[in-house]
């Protein structure tokens, strides 16, 4: 990698040396056209003498875009608390920076293995508690279940880890489990139980001690003490979306459920706002008439 090529622009680029040296043909002379098309260097610059990409008006148009994106990007990546917080707030309020980053799909956070990598292996056991009290482990965690070598990235493993920290996701995850169970067994289970499992990775010093000074012997991850703690239990019949909606029952060819079986969601839209507005208007008019 030649450092002399850093930020090289069109001006510096040399013509494409084809290396297509003329091979004397068997009696055929090289015509002018053959010389220029087949044997001359291919030019590197489609507009020689034009160093810049745009005319003046184009530059004036592009410059604010570059400035805006770059400054928003830098400020977006400052810590969101402490001294930089107000700067971010200013950018959000006056330059709509947060919405821009979201709209561009560029909102970002780079805390990978930070501030430390985990020192424990964490899993979430997901169990179905049936109406009759029976418990079924759905085997959604990877503890002792992964196939090696681990080649294809396992998104379910990631999600299993995420529901350990992201408590807000558990209700939705449980709702999905309830729906799946209902689909497969045509009945709702009682509840979904989440149990956190974890094993602590021995520190290097502990490893040295355990292996009696021979750390290359390693340790068996399955021999580490498995800690367990029940984290959550979510009931299927009272949680929103934890039952199959009528359209899914029909799609799966199931009998319609009794009324009130599905606990749906109501989202207020502009229609509700408009109706509220109409009601308010009506009340106002009524008041005036009185």
């Amino acid at each position: 990698m030649s450092e002399d090529d850093d930020m090289r622009d069109s001006k510096e680029d040399q013509p494409e040396s084809g290396g297509s040296a003329a091979v004397p043909g068997a009696g055929a002379e090289i015509s002018d056209l053959a010389q220029t098309l087949l044997h001359s260097d291919i030019p590197r610059d489609d507009k020689p003498g034009h160093r810049f990409a745009y005319p003046l008006w184009g530059m004036l148009l592009v410059t604010p875009v570059i400035l805006y994106h770059t400054s928003v990007l830098l400020v977006h990546n400052l810590p969101s608390k402490g001294l930089a917080k107000q700067t971010q707030d200013w950018f959000a309020k006056h330059l709509d920076a947060k919405r821009y980053m979201r709209a561009a799909g560029s909102n970002q956070s780079w805390a990978m293995f930070a501030p430390n990598p985990h020192r424990s292996n964490i899993f979430m056991r997901v169990e179905v508690v049936k109406e009759d009290g029976g418990v079924v482990d759905l085997e959604h965690d990877i503890y002792g279940r992964r196939w090696y070598p681990y080649l294809w990235y396992d998104r379910r493993g990631k999600i299993n880890r995420r529901i350990v920290d992201g408590k807000g996701y558990r209700r939705h995850y449980a709702a999905w489990v309830c729906r799946q169970w209902e689909r497969q067994h045509d009945e709702l289970p009682d509840e979904i139980r989440f149990t956190k499992l974890w094993t602590r990775i021995p520190s290097p010093e502990e490893l040295m001690k355990q292996t009696k000074g021979k750390p290359w012997r390693g340790y068996d991850p399955m021999n580490l003490h498995l800690n367990e703690r029940e984290e959550d239990a979510i009931r299927c019949n009272s949680t929103r979306h934890a039952q199959l909606p009528p359209y899914l029952r029909s799609r799966y060819g199931m009998e319609p459920a009794e009324d009130g079986h599905f606990r749906g969601l109501y989202i207020r839209t502009w229609v509700d706002a408009a109706e509220d507005g109409d009601d308010a208007e009506r009340r106002k008019r009524k008041g005036k008439n009185k």
Partner: peptide, 28 residues
């Protein structure tokens, strides 16, 4: 862990990430 240099030891021993369990190799 990043200051003391043990971060990669822990990262490579995480069940969720390693390609094959190689705790001995990581220890070495």
């Amino acid at each position: 862990t990043w200051k003391t240099g043990t971060a990669l030891y822990y990262a490579l021993n995480l069940d969720h990430f390693y390609r094959v369990p190689a705790t001995g190799l990581v220890g070495a």
